[in-house]
Nucleic acid binder design. Structure first.
Lengths: 203, 203
DNA sequence: ATAGTGACTATATTACAATATGGTCACTAT
DNA sequence: ATAGTGACCATATTGTAATATAGTCACTAT
């Protein structure tokens, strides 16, 4: 069954030229930004014509998606590592929130160009962002489940509602589009919001 | 543009010409938007020269502040009325959140031009927005106090932290700058977030 | 002193032509 | 069939000259 929402990938997904394009894009997007990089720039960099690039990617955005996806995956990895050895579900939640915000903020300050891609990706609802969002929700769900099983968290509220509500609370701090407006809060907010969320989860 | 933290009001605060300016601004800003309205337009409307307007307002933004302030006060009034006859603190909180979001969303859809002023005001931290923010916090504080006194809410958490955390949870839905990105959530979010907040307040 | 303004400046905005860019396609070479 | 491209088009972006605007000030009239 073909899902219409997901754009049909163009060209072979395993191909050295495809990799070269992605590699060049990673460098150019990070150095000059997504908007300022032209498809011709990438073509020149890898020594092929612009038309050939379109044998592998249907649009420039599709190239951006790959870069964005890689960037967001790096954040997810940081989150996973940040939670790794937390003793309780509560502590895992605190660390998850803290690390997520830290990783996003760091991206903002240290690789601003890539951050901007993520921001426009979020604004235009790119596939890569939807995937990221679902991954975050999955992490929240797992923490809640663990906490409920361990008797740390209440079990009355429907678990989907809990997950969605917590996601909404966190969103302003790792949705790149919203984070911009909350940079002055990235220290305090995750702490006091984690506490609020954990109070709401108390049995 | 230079922005003084507390701008010194210019000219007499009670003056028929001042009122005329505000009246004209309310009409023009609402009809054509803040940016598209020129100070000369307002001058022509009230039949005086542009220079005379600057006897009453130091900058165009100062005129915008008054309009913005009136708009936000109307929202505050709607919130107050929405909460009026709620039987419990919990219910007051739910209604407060719901009404705040409804009033803001309505402004967005029905008086888009004024909404845009509020949005840029929020982005540039105009005085009128800081006042609004403090009023909201005051309302939250009062609800928490009432709820604690009535035994509805827990009393351990420092009340300032509680207020700040709840404010942060609500912010994305009535800060005009953030609301734009959350318009698809204005139905669901206040409900499930109210529930989360109330769970966090449980004794 | 009070009410009010024309004329001015420095900056912001617009209008629009020139250029650049995303994307396509028929085509060649192997 | 596979690998690759030059030439092309419609739209987006940019450079820039002309215009408009926010804000000031010395001034007049009362």
């Amino acid at each position: 069954m073909i899902k219409k929402l997901q754009p049909i990938p163009r060209g072979p997904s395993e191909h050295s030229v495809r990799d070269q394009i992605v590699e060049a894009a990673a460098e150019y997007f990070s150095r000059y930004g997504y908007e300022k990089t032209t498809v011709s720039d990438l073509a020149k960099e890898i020594g092929f014509s612009k038309a050939y690039i379109y044998k592998f990617f249907a649009t420039k955005q599709a190239i951006g998606e790959v870069i964005c996806s890689n960037t967001l995956n790096a954040i997810l990895k940081a989150i996973d590592e940040g939670m790794a050895d937390a003793p309780t579900a509560s502590e895992r939640f605190r660390r998850m929130f803290k690390t997520a915000v830290e990783a996003s903020t760091q991206l903002f300050f240290e690789d601003r160009k890539l951050y901007d891609i993520a921001a426009s990706a979020a604004g235009e609802q790119w596939q890569s962002c939807i995937v990221y969002q679902n991954q975050i929700k999955k992490i929240i769900l797992q923490i809640i489940r663990d906490g409920r099983e361990a008797g740390e968290f209440e079990r009355k509220t429907p678990i989907d509602e809990t997950v969605n509500a917590i996601y909404l609370v966190m969103q302003p701090y790792f949705n790149p589009l919203l984070l911009q407006h909350n940079l002055d809060l990235t220290e305090q907010a995750p702490i006091i919001l984690s506490s609020l969320v954990l109070r709401s989860l108390a049995p």
